[in-house]
Protein backbone atom coordinates (compact mmCIF):
# COMPACT_ATOMS: atom_id res chain seq x y z
CA UNK A 1 0.00 0.00 0.00
CA UNK A 2 1.46 3.34 -1.00
CA UNK A 3 1.43 6.31 1.34
CA UNK A 4 -1.18 8.02 -0.83
CA UNK A 5 -3.49 5.01 -0.70
CA UNK A 6 -3.11 4.78 3.08
CA UNK A 7 -3.86 8.47 3.43
CA UNK A 8 -6.90 8.05 1.20
CA UNK A 9 -8.21 5.05 3.15
CA UNK A 10 -7.75 6.88 6.45
CA UNK A 11 -9.69 9.87 5.23
CA UNK A 12 -12.51 7.73 3.83
CA UNK A 13 -12.80 5.74 7.07
CA UNK A 14 -12.99 8.98 9.06
CA UNK A 15 -15.68 10.31 6.71
CA UNK A 16 -17.67 7.07 7.13
CA UNK A 17 -17.29 7.28 10.92
CA UNK A 18 -18.71 10.82 10.91
CA UNK A 19 -21.72 9.69 8.84
CA UNK A 20 -22.32 6.73 11.18
CA UNK A 21 -22.17 8.95 14.28
CA UNK A 22 -24.54 11.50 12.73
CA UNK A 23 -27.11 8.85 11.70
CA UNK A 24 -26.59 6.61 14.72
CA UNK A 25 -26.31 9.10 17.58
CA UNK A 26 -26.96 12.72 16.59
CA UNK A 27 -30.24 11.65 14.92
CA UNK A 28 -31.79 11.27 18.39
CA UNK A 29 -31.46 15.04 18.79
CA UNK A 30 -33.23 15.88 15.52
CA UNK A 31 -36.20 18.25 15.72
CA UNK A 32 -39.36 16.07 15.53
CA UNK A 33 -41.51 18.92 14.14
CA UNK A 34 -42.71 18.73 10.52
CA UNK A 35 -40.17 20.00 8.00
CA UNK A 36 -40.72 22.99 5.72
CA UNK A 37 -42.52 20.99 3.04
CA UNK A 38 -44.80 19.20 5.50
CA UNK A 39 -45.46 22.45 7.33
CA UNK A 40 -46.50 24.12 4.07
CA UNK A 41 -48.78 21.25 3.07
CA UNK A 42 -50.34 21.14 6.55
CA UNK A 43 -51.06 24.89 6.69
CA UNK A 44 -54.81 25.25 7.27
CA UNK A 45 -55.05 22.00 9.22
CA UNK A 46 -54.49 20.98 12.80
CA UNK A 47 -52.87 17.68 13.65
CA UNK A 48 -55.22 15.88 16.04
CA UNK A 49 -53.90 12.88 17.94
CA UNK A 50 -56.43 10.23 18.92
CA UNK A 51 -56.47 6.49 19.63
CA UNK A 52 -56.45 5.90 15.87
CA UNK A 53 -53.22 7.89 15.54
CA UNK A 54 -52.77 11.31 14.00
CA UNK A 55 -55.34 12.92 11.72
CA UNK A 56 -55.65 16.29 10.04
CA UNK A 57 -58.64 18.55 10.70
CA UNK A 58 -59.37 21.61 8.58
CA UNK A 59 -58.56 22.21 4.93
CA UNK A 60 -55.03 21.66 3.64
CA UNK A 61 -52.97 20.03 0.94
CA UNK A 62 -51.68 17.24 3.19
CA UNK A 63 -55.19 15.77 3.40
CA UNK A 64 -54.65 14.52 -0.15
CA UNK A 65 -51.50 12.66 0.91
CA UNK A 66 -51.86 8.92 0.59
CA UNK A 67 -50.38 6.51 3.10
CA UNK A 68 -47.02 5.17 1.92
CA UNK A 69 -47.41 1.87 0.04
CA UNK A 70 -44.52 0.48 2.10
CA UNK A 71 -45.64 2.04 5.41
CA UNK A 72 -45.55 -1.35 7.12
CA UNK A 73 -42.00 -2.20 6.12
CA UNK A 74 -39.52 -3.08 8.89
CA UNK A 75 -37.60 0.23 8.76
CA UNK A 76 -40.51 2.56 7.95
CA UNK A 77 -40.14 6.06 9.41
CA UNK A 78 -36.51 5.45 10.44
CA UNK A 79 -37.35 3.00 13.22
CA UNK A 80 -37.05 -0.77 13.50
CA UNK A 81 -40.62 -2.13 13.61
CA UNK A 82 -41.96 1.28 14.59
CA UNK A 83 -39.95 1.43 17.81
CA UNK A 84 -38.76 5.04 18.00
CA UNK A 85 -35.91 4.20 20.36
CA UNK A 86 -34.23 2.38 17.45
CA UNK A 87 -33.81 5.46 15.23
CA UNK A 88 -30.03 5.26 15.61
CA UNK A 89 -29.92 1.65 14.47
CA UNK A 90 -32.17 2.49 11.51
CA UNK A 91 -29.83 5.37 10.68
CA UNK A 92 -26.73 3.16 10.80
CA UNK A 93 -28.46 0.62 8.53
CA UNK A 94 -29.36 3.47 6.18
CA UNK A 95 -25.76 4.69 6.00
CA UNK A 96 -24.48 1.15 5.33
CA UNK A 97 -27.14 0.52 2.64
CA UNK A 98 -26.48 3.90 0.99
CA UNK A 99 -22.68 3.63 0.97
CA UNK A 100 -22.89 0.07 -0.38
CA UNK A 101 -25.39 0.92 -3.10
CA UNK A 102 -23.85 4.24 -4.11
CA UNK A 103 -20.24 3.08 -3.72
CA UNK A 104 -20.96 -0.09 -5.70
CA UNK A 105 -22.70 1.82 -8.48
CA UNK A 106 -19.96 4.45 -8.71
CA UNK A 107 -17.28 1.75 -8.70
CA UNK A 108 -18.99 0.05 -11.66
CA UNK A 109 -19.42 3.37 -13.48
CA UNK A 110 -15.83 4.55 -12.95
CA UNK A 111 -13.32 5.04 -15.72
CA UNK A 112 -10.71 2.31 -15.85
CA UNK A 113 -7.15 3.18 -16.79
CA UNK A 114 -6.62 2.21 -20.43
CA UNK A 115 -3.64 -0.05 -20.80
Amino acid sequence: MTTTTKRNTGFLLAFLAVALVLAGVVSYFADPNPDGLDHATQTGCQVVTSDQGESLQGTCIAQNAKAHPLAGSPLADYAVDGNESTTGLAGVIGVVVTVTLAGGLFWLLRRRPTT
Partner: peptide
Protein backbone atom coordinates in the same frame (compact mmCIF):
# COMPACT_ATOMS: atom_id res chain seq x y z
CA UNK B 1 -13.15 9.46 -6.46
CA UNK B 2 -15.66 6.57 -6.69
CA UNK B 3 -15.31 5.53 -3.00
CA UNK B 4 -15.42 9.20 -1.96
CA UNK B 5 -18.66 9.63 -3.95
CA UNK B 6 -20.23 6.61 -2.22
CA UNK B 7 -19.39 8.18 1.14
CA UNK B 8 -20.80 11.54 0.09
CA UNK B 9 -24.12 9.80 -0.61
CA UNK B 10 -24.02 8.12 2.81
CA UNK B 11 -23.16 11.46 4.43
CA UNK B 12 -26.13 13.13 2.72
CA UNK B 13 -28.38 10.31 3.95
CA UNK B 14 -27.12 10.76 7.52
CA UNK B 15 -27.41 14.53 7.44
CA UNK B 16 -30.95 14.44 6.02
CA UNK B 17 -32.01 12.69 9.24
CA UNK B 18 -30.90 15.69 11.30
CA UNK B 19 -33.87 18.05 11.27
Amino acid sequence: TAPMAGLVAAFVFATQMLN
